[in-house]
């Protein structure tokens, strides 16, 4: 059994996860990273993705993360997420709407900040649908 360390996933609205874990997989702007205990101390921005958490006891958990930050400290790792949800908490209808909206914005393709935001929104919506077990309906070229 790997050494456990403390993980906190917090959002501005609430604390989503707070407890000992052995391993997590997150995606930063630089790519996917796995974090075991005694990981190098880093601070890095996160992109919208699905985080995988291996608690010390119990089953593997997954959450959608709508972007944010990761701070790996000495014995505590903190995920500062803009939003975070378990599969059971996802509003599928809303995510589908958000996906539609994002696709439309992208289709109009104004190559400025709008596009970046729309792509992030699309990513968030597709993550939610994926985790909730609903197909995003054909991947997009975004």
């Amino acid at each position: 059994m790997a050494t456990p360390y403390h993980l906190k996933i917090v959002t501005p609205e609430r604390t989503v996860f707070d407890g000992p874990v052995t391993y997590i997989i997150v995606r930063s702007t630089e790519g996917e990273i796995g974090i075991l205990a005694h990981h190098m101390q880093i601070i890095t921005p996160l992109v919208p993705h699905i985080i995988t958490v291996y608690p010390e006891a119990g089953n593997v958990e997954q959450f959608t993360i709508g972007g944010g930050f990761l701070e790996v400290g000495n014995d505590t790792t903190v995920v500062l997420a803009d939003s975070a949800e378990r599969a059971s908490e996802i509003d599928v209808a809303r995510a589908q709407l958000a996906r539609q909206r994002a696709l439309e914005t992208i289709a109009q393709a104004k190559p400025d900040i709008d596009l970046i935001r729309a792509k992030r929104a699309l990513q968030r919506a597709e993550n939610r649908l994926k985790l909730a077990g609903h197909s995003a309906g054909g991947m997009t070229s975004a």
């Binding site: 702007t29 101390q41 880093i42 601070i43 890095t44 921005p45 400290g73 000495n74």
Partner: peptide, 16 residues
């Protein structure tokens, strides 16, 4: 506490 900023401090701060 000696942190590594990924990719670099500037990017992290601009976001954080």
């Amino acid at each position: 506490r000696s942190y590594v900023f990924e990719p670099d401090p500037e990017t992290v701060f601009n976001d954080l």
